[in-house]
Design a protein around this nucleic acid. Structure first.
Lengths: 133, 133
DNA sequence: CCTTGACCTTCCAGTGACTGGAAGGACTAC
DNA sequence: GTAGTCCTTCCAGTCACTGGAAGGTCAAGG
């Protein structure tokens, strides 16, 4: 299976497949012409990868998950730990974003958004002791 | 004011101040010895920058905000537009994160997390047609 | 005057996870 | 044989820093 077919099957750009090979995640065989030749298993692992990435797992997490996936003697606790840590990361990110959102929302609401220069958003960034104008 | 004093005053690493000069955000004067010399206004702008960054504005947004901040003839609508777009970005990011969070949470909850290999997290990544094991 | 240590300078490289593009080889269809 | 599409490798860029090396400057102490 050539790279573009594998990419289509896995729902990933061909460039990404080359990148994954570069970093040693999934190394397909090679045909006589030097072309990459992806097996159905390779495609399956690529699909697995794509889903893990879409859940926000880092490449290193994905590497670990792939190796656990292949390991029949794994402990589900190892998998769960990775996922739980990632969940914690997500929660933290969401907290940070929510905080930004709240601050920004109050500033945006307070801003007239007209042709006058007076702007609580800039005032607040310039001297944050008061959140309001 | 030397770079490390300015960095302390603004609450940013000195490296970041050099970086901001590199990209043309804030260019301090120079002493006879070649050292950067930050004026109180420079420090004020750095502090402004730090706050904008901590609200998640991109460097390019910060550049625009700084220039609006300096412009007495600005329209507050220009500021508001930047902030509103950023708010929209934040909302989108939060939506994405919440989706990941929901999916991951249900998978983590379903995983025993013991020494057995059976794992709904890996099962789901391997064949996502069913979310459950 | 000399040394020590803390500061400052510039420049280069690395982060994460790709993405774009150039230069050139291989394959397919007509 | 040639046009067009695929494939290859390699290099550079993204974003906002961050780390570190090599070397200049300054203030204090002996």
């Amino acid at each position: 299976m050539n790279i573009s077919d594998a990419a289509n099957a896995a729902g990933l750009p061909a460039k990404t497949l080359r990148y994954y090979e570069d970093i040693g995640l999934i190394t397909p065989g090679r045909g006589a012409n030097g072309y990459r030749d992806y097996s159905p298993e390779d495609v399956h692992r690529l699909t697995f990868l794509g889903r893990a990435r879409s859940l926000g797992f880092s490449i290193e997490d994905c590497r670990a998950l792939l190796s656990l996936y292949a390991d029949e003697d794994r402990s589900s606790s190892d998998v769960k730990q990775i996922a739980q840590r990632h969940l914690d990361d997500i929660s933290e990110k969401m907290r940070g974003l929510a905080e930004m959102q709240a601050t920004l929302q109050s500033l945006v609401s307070a801003c007239a958004g007209d042709k006058r220069p007076n702007c609580p958003i800039l005032s607040s960034l310039g001297q944050p002791k008061t959140t309001k104008d």
